[in-house]
Design a protein around this nucleic acid. Sequence first.
DNA 1: CTAACGTTTGTCCAATCGGTCAAAAATTTG
DNA 2: CAAATTTTTGACCGATTGGACAAACGTTAG
Lengths: 211, 211
Amino acid sequence: MNTSTDAPRRTRIQQEKRELILEAALEVFSTNGFRGSTIDQIAEAAGMSKPNLLYYFRRKEDIHETLMQRLLDTWLAPLRELDDIGDPMTELRNYIRRKLEMARDFPRESRLFANEILQGAPRIMPLLAGELKTLVDEKAAVIKGWMRAGKIARTDPWHLIFSIWATTQHYADFDVQVRAVLGADRGGDGRFEDAARFLEQLFLDGLKPKN
Amino acid sequence: MNTSTDAPRRTRIQQEKRELILEAALEVFSTNGFRGSTIDQIAEAAGMSKPNLLYYFRRKEDIHETLMQRLLDTWLAPLRELDDIGDPMTELRNYIRRKLEMARDFPRESRLFANEILQGAPRIMPLLAGELKTLVDEKAAVIKGWMRAGKIARTDPWHLIFSIWATTQHYADFDVQVRAVLGADRGGDGRFEDAARFLEQLFLDGLKPKN
DNA sequence: CTAACGTTTGTCCAATCGGTCAAAAATTTG
DNA sequence: CAAATTTTTGACCGATTGGACAAACGTTAG
């Protein structure tokens, strides 16, 4: 992993300022969407003038693209770690837990991604049909193996992965709604632990009465 | 439900054209978001000139507001129908099924709603903390009753509702991703039936092996 | 027919947008 | 130090935006 292999040579200031801009852009893009965000907003959030920002990223889309590229790697890391060798139930529990932690700790990243997908994924479609599909197919095969071995109930592995994505990311993407519905008492910091408990039961036990 | 009670008197043409605009705006807003959509786009999709559109809705926000108000009612209808009297498992199954059907038949409405929530629900926050919270609390109480009666396993009713929302709406909001990952063979029209089967098993049986 | 009213459009406007450019300021290099 | 290079900025530009407006057009009731 030599970071200087293909990356353009950059000065210390360039590295720092680019990070500053990307951090500011994540904040702005994730709450306003790409078209809803302006370069001025990002520049102000990054504490610099618009032409100065454009000195580091020549087009608005370059910022967004850089952000999305970085995002996808970290975003798929938990799924990559789903291991064939470990105990199936433990592996799934850990995956759900890690995804929920990411929703809690990186909600802006989740919303940025959701925004992109919602609008038809115009900028990352190739990645979805390529890298993402490959990874999911691979992990679906692992899960299928567990099912054949009788370690977990038989279901559709792809839809299982979808439902884990949906339920965990919901706590980042729809956070406003979750907090509004739970109200002041239950919508506080404890909501993620409640969610973790619930999701664990849902995926690992189901709703069937235990009589 | 007298529709003429508070509504301004409208001619036949006004009724028709307003519907035309709302239909066009649903299409445009749901794929581009509020700020990403232009009045020109909506006007063109509705087959009229921009000033003509502005004759029926004086501001861009008025269109969006009207759309959101209508949406919320139909969107919450399935939950409203969750009945205390019916058989719990059947009621839940039907609710999940109806929500999934809505994701299939009204994906634009789902995406419009998701767009609004994602961006912090600036225009419908009061509705979430008011009408929506009341409804969810009410239905959560119903579900709690079923749990006390031993009809379904004990869990958090609020998070149960969240997870039903998340999993079903996922097939509308993240449709592009779902289709990309499933690929050409499994991403066709059958994907909703696969999803229905999977979700039914997930929520009603769980993943525990049946040994 | 015609006056009144409802509908449609072309033209225009101020504000905002993404982005350019040259020149000033700061930093690094020799 | 001074020259070379990098960084920052103010001023500016053309395009797009939401919206205003008056004039033209269509419809209908008397």
